[in-house]
Design a protein around this nucleic acid. Structure first.
Lengths: 334, 334
DNA sequence: TTGTAAGCGTTATCAC
DNA sequence: GTGATAACGCTTACAA
C-alpha cells in the first residue's frame, strides 16, 4: 500500500494538483463543488499531506529544535514539558537533541538540529559561550531558557537567581537564624553562583559575617546534600539552618539530618530551590524558592513562534518566589 | 546569506551534483583528486546537507516519533530520557508529540507523527486500544514502552507489574506484616490493576484474607497517598504497612504518617514502586520496586532501529526488582 | 477560478 | 568513474 499523494487526490477529483493544494492550505478560493469533491477524495483515501515534501517546498520545516541537558534533573524535565505543551496545536513539532552539559556534545546537537532545518531553536540551559552561540545560530530565531546571556541581543527566559538566593536566606534570617549553612551547586554553574551571591548579600545586609566553614561544595545532587551535612557535623561547626542549592540537594540534606537524629525544623531549618513536585511532600514539606519551570518552557516556545512570525521578543521577567511550607522554624535569635 | 547547496559545491569543485552526492554518501568510488576538491569545498563553504531534501529523496526521514504522556511523571520522564539517549549518535532524531493520556489527543499525536513521515514510532504508555493502534501504525515499525499489549504482534517493552506488586507485598508479609494497606493507582490503568493483582496474590498465598477496608483508591499522585492514610486513620482501621501504587504516592503516604506522628518504619512500613530518583532520599529511604525506566527507553529506541533495519524484535523481559532500603521494618508477626 | 510548469535540495538510474 | 536527468511530493508564480 503505497502512500497516496496529492496527485492521487487530484486524479480522483478530476482537478489539478494545484487545486488540491489550494484547498489544503486554503490559499485561494476554489469552486465549492470541486472543493467538495477534493475533500471527499481526501477523506475516502485517507490522504495525509507529506510534511517533508511540504517543508522542502516552503522552506519551512514547521519544526522546532530543542536542546536539552539530558541529566534527569526534574527542573529541566519540567521545562521540556512546558516547551512541548507550549507548541500544542500550533502545527509545530519539537525535535530534541541532547547537550549533556558538555560543550562538544552541545555544539554537535545544535548543528544536528540546524541541519534538520528547524525553524527555530529553544535552548534549555547549556554551557557554550555566548559568542559561539551567536555564531552557531546566526539568523535562526532562538530562545534560551533557564540561562541568562550577557548580550540582550539574545532572547532569554530565566528567573533571578541571586534574588531567589537572597529571599531564601533572608527568610531564614528573619526567622532568627544566624548560623546558616549553604550547600552550593556545581561550582562554575551560573545559577549556583547567583544563588550563592544572593546568600552572601542577605548575610551582609543582616550584618552576619560570612563563615567559610558554612559554605559547602555541592553539585545539585542529593548526595552532595548528604555529604555537606556529614562534613559539617564531623567538623563540629554548629548551624541551625541550611540553604540548599536546589530541592534535590535539600532532600539529601534532610536525609542526612534524619540519620543524625536532628529534627526539621525544630533543630535545623531547610530551604531549597526550584519547588520540584516532590518538595511539597517531603516530611516536613519543604520551604523553597519556586521557579515556574513549566511556564518557562511554555513561554519559551510561545515566544519563539512569535519571533518566527517576525514579532519582537518581549522579555517578561519571571519571578522566583519563596514558597513557605514547614521546613523552616524559629531560630535561636527569634 | 542563502543556504549553500550541493550544487554550489559541485560548481566550486567543477564536478556534477551527482558526484558530490557520491562522496557525501560514499555510495560509489570517486577519483581521489575530485574527492579532495569536493571535501575542500564543503569545508570551505561550510556546507551542511539539507536533511529535509534528503528525506524526501530517500523516503526515509531519519526521524523517530515519540509519543509521550506529558504529565510530569518522573517515571515517564525517565523513559523519554532513555529514548533520547538510545538514539544517541545514530543519526536518528526523536520528534515528540504529547498524548496527555487522552485517546483523542493520542490519536492526533500519532497521526501528526506519521504525517511527518517518521521512520518508526516509540509509544510511551498510552491508552488507545490495541486494534486501533494496529490500524493507525500499520506497516510502520513501532515499539511500545511501559505498556503490555495482548497481541504479541506488537513489540512491547515492559516490566511485570503483577510480579512487582507480588514481590512488594510478599516482602511486607515476610517481615511479619498482615494488616497491609494498598493505595491503588488510576482505576482503569493496566499497571495499577496488575500491581493490585500482585498484592492480592501475595495475600492469598500467605492465607491472609483481603480486607476491602485496606484497599484505598488512588491516582498515582502524592495527594492520593495522603488521602488514603487520612481515610484509613479516620475510619479507624488499623494497619502496619502500606504498599503504594508508585513512589510518588508513597511520598504522600509518608507525609501523612509524619503528620499523624506515626514513625516509619517503626509504626508503619512502606513500599513504593518505580524507584524514582527521590526514593533513595526519602527519610527514611524508601524500599521500592525498581523499574529501569532509562534502560527501557534506551532499549525501545535501540530495538526500534533494529526493526527499521529489518531485524526481528527480540523480546527481552525486564525485571521489576525489589530494592530494600529502610522504610520496611518488622511487623507484629515477626 | 483553475491548470501548467518551475522550483525546493537530494538521491538514484541511466548511459557514456 | 562521471554526468545528465528523472524522481521525491508539495507549493507557487504565471497564464489562461
Amino acid at each position: 500500500m503505497k502512500n497516496i499523494t496529492i496527485q492521487d487526490i487530484a486524479n480522483e477529483a478530476s482537478v489539478s494538483k494545484a487545486t488540491v493544494s489550494r484547498v489544503l492550505n486554503n490559499t485561494s478560493p476554489v469552486r465549492p463543488d470541486k472543493r467538495e469533491a477534493i475533500l471527499e477524495a481526501i477523506q475516502r483515501l485517507g490522504f495525509k499531506p507529506n510534511v517533508v515534501a511540504r517543508s522542502l517546498a516552503k522552506g519551512r520545516s514547521m519544526t522546532i529544535g530543542v536542546l536539552t541537558q539530558n541529566i534527569g534533573s526534574p527542573f529541566y524535565d519540567t521545562i521540556s514539558q512546558g516547551v512541548i505543551a507550549g507548541l500544542g496545536e500550533t502545527g509545530y513539532s519539537p525535535i530534541f537533541a541532547d547537550g549533556q552539559w558538555q560543550r562538544g556534545a552541545e555544539v554537535e546537537a545544535i548543528q544536528a538540529l540546524i541541519g534538520r532545518r528547524v525553524d527555530g531553536l529553544v535552548l534549555i540551559g547549556g554551557d557554550i559561550p555566548a559568542e559561539q552561540l551567536e555564531e552557531l545560530c546566526r539568523d535562526l530565531p532562538t530562545v534560551v531558557v533557564a540561562r541568562q546571556l550577557p548580550s540582550d541581543h539574545h532572547h532569554c527566559i530565566f528567573t533571578n537567581n541571586v534574588d531567589g538566593g537572597y529571599c531564601a536566606t533572608r527568610h531564614l534570617i528573619e526567622n532568627g537564624h544566624r548560623e546558616i549553612a549553604i550547600v552550593r551547586g556545581i561550582e562554575h554553574h551560573p545559577d549556583a553562583i547567583d544563588r550563592y551571591e544572593g546568600y552572601k548579600r542577605a548575610l551582609a545586609e543582616a550584618g552576619i559575617e560570612l563563615d567559610p566553614r558554612l559554605v559547602l561544595p555541592g553539585d545539585f545532587s542529593a548526595e552532595s546534600g548528604v555529604s555537606a551535612i556529614d562534613d559539617l557535623s564531623e567538623r563540629g561547626r554548629t548551624f541551625t539552618a541550611v540553604f540548599a542549592a536546589n530541592d534535590t540537594t535539600a532532600f539529601g540534606v534532610r536525609l542526612a539530618l534524619y540519620r543524625r537524629g536532628l529534627r526539621v525544623p525544630e533543630d535545623v531549618s531547610i530551604v531549597g530551590f526550584d519547588d520540584q513536585a516532590e518538595a511539597a511532600f517531603m516530611a516536613p514539606p519543604l520551604t523553597t524558592v519556586r521557579q515556574p519551570g513549566r511556564e518557562m518552557g511554555a513561554l519559551a516556545s510561545g515566544s519563539l513562534l512569535e519571533l518566527i512570525d517576525g514579532k519582537p521578543f518581549e522579555s517578561r521577567p519571571l519571578l522566583a518566589e519563596l514558597i513557605e511550607r514547614e521546613s523552616v522554624g524559629r531560630g535561636p535569635g527569634a
